[in-house]
């Protein structure tokens, strides 16, 4: 029986259609689809290592519509780390992250100790870019969180996104590698501890 308390819970937020599900499914299943099925709430589980033992990474993919505020509050209070996704092709989608970020601050309080990654997805669609990566970076600085651009479609930076997020967790050592060994990249990141924006 999976141990509930041992779970490390990551919650993915962002406006409808920015590619939250695509990122999660690319990471969990390695697949991508062009068609769009709006999400209500899905949760995927993966075994990872945590403080040298095994634990479950629980990734909750939320809805982009604002229909269920109570569900959103519940996932925030249960979540350990957050991924805030916008699409680089939509300035509006970056705007829509603000209330979510504020709600996380409100519910979680000490925001700096909580791993949060701001993600600009769909960076394969450069021709339709509305948000420069420098703008994303600036926003991340303001929010005291990390930043990355990704593409679920081309599988750019997807695994890295999740690994970086886990690296930001300072209260325990969580890693995608089950053998407990740290990747080079991970060690490098640990040296950068304290720096907020990791590119």
């Amino acid at each position: 029986m999976p141990e509930q308390s041992n779970d490390y819970r990551v919650v993915v937020f962002g406006a409808g259609g920015v590619g939250k599900s695509s990122l999660v499914l690319r990471f969990v299943k390695g697949t991508f689809r062009e068609s769009y099925i709006p999400t209500i709430e899905d949760t995927y589980r993966q075994v990872i290592s945590c403080d040298k033992s095994i634990c479950t990474l629980q990734i909750t993919d939320t809805t982009g519509s604002h229909q269920f505020p109570a569900m959103q509050r519940l996932s925030i209070s249960k979540g350990h780390a957050f991924i805030l996704v916008y699409s680089i092709t939509s300035r509006q989608s970056l705007e829509e992250l603000k209330p979510i970020y504020e709600q996380i601050c409100q519910i979680k309080g000490d925001i700096e100790s909580i791993p949060i990654m701001l993600v600009g997805n769909k960076n394969d669609e450069n021709q339709n870019r509305e948000v420069e990566s420098s703008e994303g970076e600036a926003m991340a600085k303001k929010w005291k969180c990390a930043f990355m651009e990704t593409s679920a479609k081309t599988n750019h930076n997807v695994k890295e996104l999740f690994q970086e997020l886990l690296n930001l967790e300072k209260r325990r050592t969580v890693s995608l590698q089950i053998d407990g060994k740290k990747s080079k990249q991970q060690k490098r990141k640990e040296k950068l501890k304290g720096k907020c924006v990791v590119m």
């Binding site: 999976p2 999400t39 209500i40 709430e41 899905d42 949760t43 995927y44 589980r45």
Partner: peptide, 9 residues
């Protein structure tokens, strides 16, 4: 089986 879930409409 691994207790992942999807919510369907």
């Amino acid at each position: 089986p691994d207790h992942s879930y999807v919510t369907i409409r």
